[in-house]
Write a protein that binds this DNA or RNA. Structure first.
Lengths: 334, 334
DNA sequence: ATTAAATATTGATAAAATTTATGTCAGATA
DNA sequence: TATCTGACATAAATTTTATCAATATTTAAT
C-alpha cells in the first residue's frame, strides 16, 4: 500500500538546490559529486512523474510542482529534525542542540552573554545563534527551525496568534556622537540640535529604524527632517563610523558599553526625550519544547529579565505541552 | 550538517510492526522477508543509538524511545502522503496556479472573460492576471514568471527568438467622441477633421500610442499635428473624460461596448481609415508548460481566436515538450 | 568563434538492502 | 528433561541502488 515516491535524501537535495541556487553548489554543500544530485533529482522526477525543474541548460528553475514539493519537503525535514531532537532529549541533556534566534542588536550584545552562561552549565548541548530580521526570525520560530528568539520589533500579524510573545526587558536607544563633536561638550542637548546632525543608520527596513521612527515621532520630532548621511548594515560599522567623526547615530546602550568606558564615543542626552523599546521573547508553544530550550527558558532568561516581566516569563516556563509522546502504547505480543 | 538518522522506509517498517504486532507479519504486509525487517530495525537502533524494542526472545516490545519515534513517524508519514496528494492534484488540475499576463486593454476587457470561463471549468486552479507594459510582460513570460500573455505591441527584439509569438486576433481601435460633439452628428468624418480635435490618450510609451502612431502615419495622417490635451493612465479614466466632453480618444472597440449601447459615447467612423492592430499570444516554449496553462491554451484561447489564426494556435497547443514521458524506455533482455 | 559555467550521461565501483538458508532462544508440550 | 515451535538473529550470496570520475552537451557570455 501507500508507497512514498520520494526519500528524505531526495527532499534534502531538493532543499539544498533551492537554497544554493544550483545543482553544483548543492552538491558541494552536501559533500557529494554533482552527478549524484542530477541523478537523484531525475529519479525523483521519474517516480513522481512530474518535472521539478525547468532546464534551460545553464540554470535550472523550479517548476510549480517543484515548488510544491519543496514546500512540503521543508516541512517534512523540519518534522524529522524535531523527531531527532525529541529522541536525543529523551536520552538526557548530555547532547542535543539549542537554536536561538535574535535580531542584530540582541544577537550581538545580549545573547552571547546568555549563551555563554548556558554553555557553562550544559557544555554538551551545542548552541546555535541565528541572527536575522524580526520577520524572518518570527517565521523560523513558527516553523520550529528555531527554538526561541529575542526580538525588538513587531511580530508579523499572521503569526501573533501562533507564537507566544512575552515582553522581556526594556532596551534603551542612545544618541551617540564622535567625542570631539561640538555638541559632545554639553551636558544635555535639546531637540532642535537633532536637526543639525548627520546620521548614520541601519537600512530603513530594520527594526531599530522602525522603532526609532515611532518613538521619535511620539516625542514630536519630525524624523523625515533628520539628515541621513549613510546607511550601513552592521552596528559595529556604524559605531566605527561615528567614532571616526562621520556622523551621529542611535544605537542600543548595550552596544556601546565598551566604547563609552574607553571614551571613544560620546553619548548625548536629549532633554526630555528617552527612547525605549521593549524586547520580547518569542516561542511556539504548539511545538515540542526540547529539554535544552526548557532549561534556557527556566534558568538563563530570568537572569536578564526586567523585574516587571518576570511573572509572565515564569508563566511561560510552566506551559510546556508534553506534545504527543505518550498517547500511544503499543505492546507487541501474541 | 543536519543528517537525518532514519529513512522513511524505516519509519514505515516501524509503523507496520506496531500495526501487525510482529516482525514477521510486518514483513508479510510489506512484501519483504523477515530478516529485512530485523536488519532495518537494527540499523535504525544503531543510527539513533537508542534501543527501540525490548527483546525478550519470543516477543518484542517497544521501548519509550520506540513509542516516541513511532508517534513522530506516523506524523511524518501522514505528511508525506499529503505531499503526494498535493502533487497528484496539481497534475489533475485540482490545484495549482495559472499566471496570465496582459496589457491594459486586453487585461481589462478580454482576459477577464477568458479567465471567467477557465475558472468555471477548473475552479480549483487559482488564476492570476498581471497587467503590465508589453515589454515587462514579455520578459515575465521569458523568465517563466508568467505562463502566457496576450499583448498588442511588439515583443522586444532580444526576446523574439526565445518566445513563441502567435498572432491571435485583430483588435480594432475606434475614435470616440462625446455624444454631444458636433462631429458626432455626421455619419462619417474625414481625415482633416482629426486635426480639429483635442485628444485624451494614454502616455506616449504605451503600446496603444505606438500602434496608433504607426497605423495613422500609414494612413497619411501626421500624428504630431494632433493636439493632445491630456494624458491619463487608465482607459476607464479616458472614457469618463471623453464622456464628459473633455475631448476625443482612440480606444479598442472592446473597451466601449457598454458605453456605445448606452449611447453615452459616440464612435466616429473616419472615411477610408480603419485602425487595426494584431493581438498576439506569447508563450515560452522552452519551459515546462503546466497542466493549467496547457488547458488554457487548448480550451479557452480558441474560443476568442479569429478564424484566420486558429491554425497557428492549434500548432502551438501541440508543441508542448512532453518532457520526460517518453524516456521510460523499457528494454527486456536476459 | 571561443570560452566558461552548469547540468547530463556513461560505465565502473562501492555501498546498502534483500534474500535464502541457517542459527539461537524462550516457552509450550509431552 | 527432552523436544518442538514460533519468533527473531545472523551469515553469505545476490541484487539493487547510489556514487564517483571522466566526459559530453548545452547555452550564455565574451
Amino acid at each position: 500500500m501507500s508507497d512514498i515516491p520520494f526519500s528524505l535524501d531526495q527532499l534534502r537535495i531538493l532543499k539544498a538546490i533551492a537554497e544554493e541556487g544550483s545543482f553544483k553548489r548543492a552538491a558541494d554543500s552536501l559533500f557529494v559529486s554533482q552527478p549524484a544530485i542530477s541523478l537523484q533529482i531525475q529519479n525523483l522526477e521519474k517516480q513522481l512523474a512530474v518535472p521539478l525543474f525547468d532546464r534551460g541548460g545553464r540554470k535550472a528553475q523550479l517548476t510549480e510542482a517543484g515548488n510544491l514539493l519543496l514546500a512540503y519537503g521543508e516541512k517534512i525535514i523540519t518534522l524529522c529534525q524535531e523527531t531527532c531532537r525529541a529522541i536525543e532529549d529523551l536520552q538526557n541533556l548530555q547532547g542535543g542542540t539549542l537554536i536561538v534566534g535574535a535580531s542584530q542588536t540582541t544577537g550581538t550584545y545580549l545573547l552571547p552573554r546568555m549563551i555563554g552562561l548556558f554553555h557553562q552549565k550544559y557544555p554538551y548541548v551545542s548552541v546555535q545563534l541565528q541572527v536575522h530580521s524580526t520577520r524572518r526570525t518570527s517565521w523560523a520560530v513558527a516553523n520550529g527551525q528555531v527554538d526561541l528568539a529575542i526580538i525588538g520589533g513587531e511580530v508579523p500579524l499572521e503569526l501573533q496568534e501562533i507564537l507566544e510573545i512575552i515582553p522581556y526587558t526594556e532596551d534603551e536607544l542612545a544618541l551617540i556622537l564622535p567625542p570631539n563633536h561640538p555638541l559632545a561638550e554639553q551636558e544635555t542637548i535639546v531637540r532642535d540640535d537633532l536637526y543639525n546632525l548627520n546620521y548614520i543608520t541601519l537600512d530603513s527596513q530594520s527594526t531599530i529604524r522602525k522603532v526609532l521612527d515611532q518613538v521619535l515621532t511620539r516625542c514630536q520630532i519630525n524624523t523625515s527632517e533628520l539628515k541621513i548621511e549613510m546607511e550601513l548594515n552592521s552596528i559595529e560599522a556604524i559605531k566605527n563610523a561615528v567614532q571616526s567623526g562621520l556622523g551621529a547615530s542611535f544605537v542600543s546602550v548595550t552596544a556601546i558599553e565598551k566604547e563609552l568606558k574607553m571614551g571613544i564615543i560620546h553619548r548625548a542626552h536629549i532633554q526630555g526625550v528617552e527612547i525605549q523599546r521593549t524586547l520580547s521573547v518569542i516561542v511556539n508553544s504548539n511545538r515540542y519544547r526540547s529539554k535544552a530550550s526548557e532549561a534556557f527558558i527556566k534558568e538563563i532568561l530570568p537572569q536578564f529579565c526586567s523585574e516587571n516581566h518576570l511573572a509572565s516569563l515564569d508563566r511561560l516556563s510552566k506551559k510546556n505541552k508534553d506534545s504527543f509522546t505518550q498517547d500511544k502504547k503499543i505492546i507487541i505480543e501474541s
